[in-house]
């Protein structure tokens, strides 16, 4: 470029510029910039993504080139070149905009399908939970029905009370659980496991025969045996309390053998989840 201008200058000195004319005129910086910008746009994704804008840029550059060839480094040629450079840049940026818009559309789609999947998964999980709960309730009913075969079940203010006669569980005066009773206790454990978070109080009760202290200790030992057995069957220890009530809360007269048999019992009280575990009642 610089050599070009020097040649021109010298030709001017020699007074033969008229001969050379416009053909040897210095290419304006704007035209060079426009060419470079068009080159860059052609190498970009513009031919694929913004062909119309690239075509406009091409025509714009063509006008600048033609005007330069005819008129040389005129102001309007520089203007045309300046505009051509912007058009080329416009075409290149337009292809990037198209690309970005596509990226965003893709992301929108992805987000939408994720949100849809999430909603479906949530609904599914809800349905699974509902089915599981219904099944658990059914199993609980069955378990209670089996329990009813060897025990009495009553709803009271303190909770659901399952009363198991003493002779079903223990030998007279002892607190080791009878082998024959294990199946019944397994069914009890099963029912309690269905009541996932219920608080459980095991109460041992005796008749009035024997000393108070002896009866209290025996009833506590028996309640503890039942508790230990239930723990083995998977009931969580923090949910379950053993209490020795002794002869303090009879349910029948201690004067007859039948009455005493009814008083010798273990009561399993199933309370609301997180209810306070205590052996006494307000």
């Amino acid at each position: 470029m610089r050599s070009h201008s020097r040649v021109l200058y010298m030709l001017g000195l020699l007074g033969i510029s008229a001969v050379v004319g416009a053909c040897a005129a210095t290419e304006p910086r704007e035209l060079l910039d426009a060419r470079a910008a068009y080159e860059e746009a052609s190498r970009s994704r513009a031919p694929e993504l913004s062909p119309a804008e690239l075509q406009t840029a091409k025509e714009s550059l063509g006008r600048a080139e033609f005007a330069f060839k005819e008129d040389g480094n005129e102001q309007y040629v520089r203007d045309l070149s300046y505009i051509a450079e912007r058009k080329a840049e416009f075409a290149r940026i337009q292809s990037k905009v198209v690309e970005a818009v596509r990226m965003k559309e893709q992301a929108d789609q992805e987000l939408l399908s994720m949100a849809t999947n999430l909603a479906e998964t949530k609904n599914e999980a809800l349905a699974v939970e509902q089915r599981a709960r219904a099944k658990a309730e059914e199993r609980m009913k069955e378990a209670l029905a089996r329990l009813a075969a060897f025990s009495a079940i009553k709803e009271e203010a303190r909770g659901t009370v399952i009363t198991i006669p003493g002779q079903v569980l223990f030998e007279s005066g002892k607190y080791a659980i009878l082998r024959n009773a294990e199946q019944s206790l397994n069914q009890l454990a099963e029912a309690l496991l269905e009541e996932r978070n219920a608080a459980i109080v095991i109460e041992g009760h005796t008749d009035s025969q024997g000393s108070d202290d002896f009866n209290r200790q025996l009833s506590l030992d028996r309640a503890t045996s039942v508790r230990d057995y239930l723990l083995q069957r998977g009931i969580a220890p923090d949910r379950i309390l053993a209490c020795g009530i002794g002869e303090d809360r009879p349910v029948a007269q201690n004067t007859s053998p039948e009455g005493r048999a009814n008083n010798r019992r273990v009561e399993v009280v199933v309370k609301e989840p997180n209810a306070k575990l205590a052996c006494t009642y307000p």
Binding site: D79, Y82, I83, R86, F90, K96, V97, A107
Partner: peptide
Amino acid sequence: TRADADAELALLLAREQRVLEEAAAVR
């Protein structure tokens, strides 16, 4: 005419930035 070419380019460059930001927000 020169001013118009510059303004159109400015608008497009700003638009590019906006679309990129929107896409990033979705990402």
